[in-house]
Design a protein around this nucleic acid. Structure first.
Lengths: 207, 207
DNA sequence: GTCTATATAAGGATAGAC
DNA sequence: GTCTATCCTTATATAGAC
């Protein structure tokens, strides 16, 4: 731990700034020069610590997704343990961890927008990286949804889940940029948002 | 017209190729060199015909959005003329023209993906361009939705519409890349897709 | 309108001193 | 680990011949 509070390690500062700039300008749109300038580190630091821009991007994802998916899987396990769980519970296990992360830290809000970009960009390498490292999470959720929506055939289910995941991610990303009213606390606000999104998604899946 | 385009003007070829590459790699990710190489025209042609990359991007939007929004407004006017219209009718006026355009031409499918990128990218200049030129269309739709959803206050309504528009655009973009089953005709396929999306969105809006 | 050639800037990445 | 300096590539844009 550094002696004075604001002094994060160079590596951490780069990751934080990269997250913000990738959210704002995209992966191709944000340059390493912008990143290092904003992080107040030397240009060469990125290559020293990460090797390449590509690896830096992956590290930005890894830093948050490891934690996010751990929470998501834990929440899903808890839901599955309850034999009377319903669709809304599974959606809750998907949405709530993301909302919590996005509101707990300043960077969390930026990261959800980065995640939304990853959905929109159909970049091959990025999708492969995410699928290789975190595909099992989505598959576990898909299984849970399949049990609750037996009237949908496999193709239809996957198509809808893709839309729902995209819509939820888009919504959460957009949401992070909306200022809440002063009177409601963050926790209350998050609660109401989660409810809205879950009802919205459940209605779409059941339709 | 067959897919081979022997005698398209240079300008048209650039627009078509740019649309495809912007869909695939994003606005920052696709370079003018890639565009001109794929269009088999000289690098200088872009600046001659469009002046700058920025203007080329705007032209890519203009070429399709003028037509798309004309159809959307016409469809909405027809819906409004029917005093017994329901939520699904308004959604239909929004979704169907986009689906038709995306299936009528090869470029149309790419354009819907370009549109989805514009939603995901929160680029200031691009949003301003779209808002300045096509904002009135979304406002007319918002008015129509407001009449049908009187239980939602203004803030809540706008938030939901934003999500719905984003989700629908994302879905249509993704959808253009899914191969349909051989046995169903394009028209049938489009019909079923429109129904799904509309029910999905209506359920989310009413929830 | 289309070409070649080039100006000028910005990009990612590395070498080597400290 | 961090710096300066630099290489090499790619980028957008323009000038001027044809």
């Amino acid at each position: 731990m550094p002696p004075s509070q604001p002094n994060f390690s160079t590596k951490e500062r780069i990751l934080g700034v990269a997250e913000t700039l990738f959210a704002r300008h995209g992966f191709a749109g944000a340059s390493l020069r912008q990143v290092t300038a904003a992080a107040k580190v030397n240009l060469a630091a990125v290559n020293y610590h990460f090797g390449s821009k590509e690896s830096l991007i992956e590290e930005v994802f890894r830093r948050r997704l490891d934690e996010l998916n751990r929470y998501r899987l834990a929440a899903l396990a808890a839901v599955n343990a309850n034999p009377e769980h319903v669709l809304e519970d599974v959606l809750d296990a998907f949405v709530r961890p993301a909302l919590e992360q996005s509101m707990d830290s300043a960077g969390g809000a930026a990261f959800v927008r980065v995640l939304a970009r990853a959905y929109a960009e159909h970049d091959e390498r990025l999708r492969k990286f995410l699928s290789d490292n975190y595909g099992h999470v989505l598959r576990e959720f898909a299984t849970a949804f399949a049990h609750l929506l037996p009237h949908l055939d496999k193709e239809e289910l996957y198509w809808r889940l893709d839309i729902v995941a995209g819509a939820l991610t888009y919504a959460m990303a957009d949401f992070g940029m909306i200022k809440r009213r002063g009177e409601t606390s963050e926790a209350t606000h998050r609660e109401r948002t989660a409810e809205h999104l879950i009802r919205f998604a459940a209605a779409g899946l059941r339709a």
